[in-house]
Simulated assay, not measured.
Amino acid sequence: MRLVSPVLFLTLLAVNAGNIIPGAAELENRGQKVWAREGSSALLPCYLSPRKHGKSRKHLSDRISVLWKRHGASAPQELHVVLEVEYTGLRKTALPMRPRVSVLDSALRNGNFSLCINPVRSDDAGLYEAQVSYSTEIRSCRVELGVVTVALSPPLPVVENEPLLLSCNSSHQASLVETCWFHNGHPVLTSGAFCSSHGALYILRPTVSDSGSWHCQLRYADNEIVSATHNLQILGELSLCIAIPASPSCFLWCGH
């Protein structure tokens, strides 16, 4: 019987209408893309497929080593070490990403070499490559991390009737074609109190009823769709509440 050589496969995470949907890709060195929102966590998947080798994951050798590297932003041919786990258990982490990157020791023995980044920063976007060594095998996989950012201006707290800017952008390099905004699942008509331009949404006179889930969806010229959700809380107008403190010149601000 012919033995099938083991390969690594990446779980494909594709963005479809604002949702991240898992799929499957089983070709070694076939790059996949994962999107994560800045400030959240990202999982760069890399697994050993049990269907592509003749023995169970639980029989993997204890001499497993994993090396994650990142391609340089200005010079893609340059590789920079992100995290290295030697078969002895010794870990080496790049100083700029310490302690935000990790892999699970228990998962390594089960063929899961995925890299977790938490929290994600905007400059984490880029191409990552893992090299896994076990027994006499050396396998690799690639994952591209895209980062989407939602920002508020002015920053928190957001107060009723004060103009608000919600901006949404991503690390994707193609030209932005369309931006759509949704509030609590309903499309936002960009007229009157709302104005949208280049991924940003202006709310001229926000009210408490504008609190809730705000979802931005960016569509690019290459048909890539990127989305993110921000939960917004808007406070009622502040009023001056006169307390009776020790000093008569001391006042307390409170909200309705």
Rank of each mutant, 00 (worst) to 15 (best):
I242Y: 04
T207V: 12
S239Y: 09
R139N: 13
W214K: 10
H198S: 14
A228I: 01
D210T: 00
L152T: 10
P155V: 14
V143A: 12
R205C: 06
E224Q: 14
C195G: 10
F194V: 05
P154Y: 09
A243G: 15
V143W: 00
C180K: 05
S239V: 11
N223K: 14
H215S: 06
H230D: 13
L201G: 03
R142K: 15
I203S: 04
G192M: 00
V147Y: 03
T190N: 07
V177Y: 04
P206V: 01
V188K: 08
R219L: 15
C241P: 08
W181N: 03
E162F: 09
V188G: 02
A193N: 12
A243W: 12
L145C: 04
G192A: 05
E237N: 13
S153Q: 11
I242L: 14
L238G: 08
C195H: 15
G212V: 01
T179D: 11
L165E: 10
G192L: 02
T149G: 03
Y202W: 15
R219F: 11
S196E: 15
D210L: 14
S211D: 02
S170H: 05
L152H: 02
S167V: 01
L145D: 09
Y220A: 07
S227Q: 07
T179L: 12
V150A: 13
P206A: 12
N231G: 02
V177A: 04
H183Y: 09
C141Y: 08
I138R: 10
E144F: 07
D210F: 07
L152G: 08
V226Y: 04
D210Y: 03
V150Q: 15
P155K: 09
T207R: 12
L152R: 05
L204I: 09
F182L: 12
C195V: 11
V177H: 00
I242D: 07
P154I: 01
L164C: 06
E162M: 12
Q173T: 14
L240N: 02
P187G: 08
E162S: 13
R139K: 10
H230V: 10
I225P: 03
P163A: 00
R139G: 00
W214H: 06
A228H: 01
V143Q: 07
N184D: 13
G146N: 04
H172L: 04
I234R: 02
L176T: 02
R139C: 07
L218Y: 02
V226D: 01
A243D: 07
L189T: 15
S227H: 01
E160C: 01
I225M: 09
R139T: 05
D222M: 00
